[in-house]
Design a protein around this nucleic acid. Sequence first.
DNA 1: AAGTCAAGCAACCGCGGTGAC
DNA 2: CGTCACCGCGGTTGCTTGACT
Length: 262
Amino acid sequence: MKKQVCTNNEEFKRGAWKPEEDLILKRYIEANGEGKWTTVSKKSGLMRSAKSCRMRWKNHLRPNIKHGQISEDEEDLIIRMHKLLGNRWSLIAGRIPGRTDNEVKNYWNTHLSKRNLNHQGQSMNSVTFNCKKRRNMVSDTNDIQQTLSIVSTKEQDESNIFNGSDERVDAQLSNPSSTTSTSSGAEEVKAVQRYADNSAAGDTAKIISEEEIYSCWLSDEPTFYVPFVPSLDYSILPFDSLDNNYEDCWTNKLRLHDLVED
DNA sequence: AAGTCAAGCAACCGCGGTGAC
DNA sequence: CGTCACCGCGGTTGCTTGACT
């Protein structure tokens, strides 16, 4: 893997873009089309790196880019999508017309993350524990039982959030829908417990209610949410195997929450 | 008026995925 | 199959601006 570097000795211009530079880039792309950013960089005469040109176009100059304040509807959508997808900004931005991933990310970091953090602190629905314990834990019911014991221990400790090592995991037993957001972490733990019990008995059909299903989520990292939902494909898998399937998994999740465009 | 601080945002950086050769 | 260039993503940095003292 080779990183994109400036191979010759030419110095690329850096810092804020000037209006005249914007104009040059816009005209060049209108004339020659999008893509081939190294060519854009060289032939436009901008003395900007390919990356810089691409970013400027994508985040500011592209047609249909919406500037200005994020509306309440957009904010609500961001919150819901983030709950489902984590920090997958491009996916989130892709469902908010005219907004870029950078803009959504910045908005989240400056406006919503703090609010979300406060909310989590109050809701007592988030349990954090070590990644090493989490990894592969959803592969079978024994692992689920192990998970439950970890979660229960945390519940007993009345310590819902603690900061571990870098390799940490959030077991977010939170509810994406506001209607049941008052359900306690203990209730959700019970729902997972019932799933584990029924799974152990070989009965995956009458596990937990739809409401409870939506309320149970696990994430491996703050940026990666895995549905802990028996009714979805790929839901109970060794974590590593999710890599091959999670796009479908997201689609299922989004469909369940009316967030699929097509 | 000047200095300080925090918030907001644009831009940059490092890395991984992918396709062409 | 390996290498390389290109592209895109997510995290981080640092500049600008406004509020406050």
